[in-house]
Design a protein around this nucleic acid. Structure first.
Lengths: 299, 299
DNA sequence: AAATAATTGTACTGCCTGTATAAAAATCAT
DNA sequence: ATGATTTTTATACAGGCAGTACAATTATTT
């Protein structure tokens, strides 16, 4: 990667650590890195893209560090696992990755959200597979649940421990404590047979990005809600809202959206709309047209 | 409370559920509730204040609901506890409270953050005290850890279960499963004597809001970082940054800030500052003056 | 040296939160 | 009921933000 671009990422990372993502303006990044706005948008199409680039490099680094710890070692050895987790959390802490991750997850950007979800699932899957190494194939049906709970236990212990900053407990202690709890849990649920989520779910989570679909949903939702808003004080409000809700429903929740119905609904709205809504309706029409075009291409 | 004001809160709540807090603009709230901007800012001093008002009413409602379930019942009975937790999570889900809470925690507003932290600690304390009811005084030293871990287990189980929306596991099952794990954990740590956080910490967390202090910190930090930024291309950058960092350090991390040193530092900066920085320096001076005044009043 | 690509500076759009204020409407006190 | 006070409205405004547009300049390739 371009060293200049990497330099911008590093500066941004530093600023995100100090002030948080949302509190850091693009102008801040420009001032500190000494590049111009044009160059920034030549490198990244948006602030969120920069964040994705940052996360990508950090996650790669962490994954590599974790994998290196396993090389030439016995995967069954739980001490290695502890070292791996400890490494991850120490790196996270140094980079304030967890806060950043939390802060950013609920931003109103489908692409970013999908990316973060994928990272998330990836790390759960990693845990799950390491648990198979450690606890054996026979415990498999319970290990997704245990991976999820281990994550919760560790994360919360870590969070409250750093809140109690006077505490002299080290990350190593926290990891060991959390692992100890998990070992007992695995034994217990394997004994009683209790299960919440079957591990097969992981497969259905992984490839299922549907990125374009989600982005479409967001745009669609935005368009419909703008239209609804512009109708608030209209006398035939109820009728129009019904039509808009129908379009939404038909596009998102029916197995196969009926194109002619939706087109008819939009036409009907257009014929009675004021000039203000007309522009928005045209956008909606375009959006729907693109959606169907894309569907046909996929066949 | 004013019914009109409550109505605005309800409308806002609905919008936050549908679109999220950040994606809902004040204009949206005005349009849907039919009030004017002036009235809005008469009711709430900011969007964040509105959110605090919303959280306050919701939390009160949940706490009351939980307490009502305990009336006339045996506090030792774990079934009642399960019902209480189930009630809380069902209400949370209906109100999307957890997402809202997560979304909003990292906004750049100290007052809001302090408020949310207090809510957080409050709920952990509630768990801890219920655990004392259930598991007995003898287990007390381990019950803060267990409350924290229970929260993590439950929250994660719940999160992944709703992600796997095809799952037919009910909230009740998730709560019961999580409680079962916790019961074993309590026994285990009481046996082995492992402890991360002593419960006495709760007391030191609770009253210690230091709201004004935190708000001051935020303003101070902002002021210093603006000044730093304006010095980026200054030749004596390093010297000034050193001075600024000293002021920050002395004000925030020394037991008793030495007023005369800080005033001297600011004077020295002022004497050599450009006109641009002068305005910002004056604000910093004012901020520091107010801080010391407040300290003296507190004595 | 010419052609191509990267970078800069600046002005712009459009959205946002929050402020200011004068006019209108509603409520209260006498 | 009327005069005083508070609440509400409408509207314009300030300042900050992300992102776009584009012509002028500087680097890099060929």
């Amino acid at each position: 990667m371009n060293t200049r671009k990497q330099h911008v990422i590093d500066i941004a990372h530093q600023l995100f650590i100090e002030k948080g993502f949302q509190a850091t303006s693009i102008q801040d990044i420009l001032d500190y890195s000494g590049i111009s706005k044009g160059t920034f948008y030549n490198y990244f199409s948006s602030k969120n893209e920069l964040l994705i680039a940052l996360f990508t490099t950090l996650f790669k680094k962490i994954e590599k560090g974790q994998d290196d710890l396993l090389i030439g070692q016995d995967p069954k050895n739980i001490e290695i696992f502890i070292k791996q987790i400890q490494y991850k959390y120490e790196t996270n802490r140094a980079n304030k990755l967890l806060s950043l991750f939390d802060e950013v997850f609920y931003l109103n950007d489908e692409e970013l959200k999908q990316f973060l979800k994928r990272c998330h699932i990836r790390s759960i899957r990693w845990l799950y597979e390491r648990f198979i190494d450690i606890f054996g194939e026979s415990k498999k049906p319970y290990l997704l649940d245990c991976a999820i709970m281990f994550r919760g236990i560790l994360q919360n212990n870590q969070k409250y421990n750093s809140a109690a900053n006077n505490s002299n407990v080290s990350i190593h202690d926290i990891v060991r404590y959390s692992v100890n709890r998990t070992v007992t849990m695995v034994e217990e649920v394997a004994e009683t047979g209790e299960q919440l989520l079957p591990p097969e779910l992981l497969d259905s989570w992984m490839p299922n990005c549907k990125k374009t679909n989600k982005a479409f949903q967001q745009k669609l939702y935005h368009s419909i809600s703008t239209l609804k808003k512009s109708l608030i004080h209209n006398e035939d409000q109820a009728k129009y809202i019904e039509l808009l809700d129908f379009i939404l429903e038909e596009l998102l929740h029916s197995k196969e959206s009926r194109k002619f119905l939706i087109e008819m609904a939009i036409r009907s709205l257009k014929s009675e709309a004021g000039s203000l809504e007309k522009k928005e309706l045209q956008q909606l029409e375009q959006l729907v047209a693109n959606y169907f075009k894309q569907l046909e291409e996929a066949d």
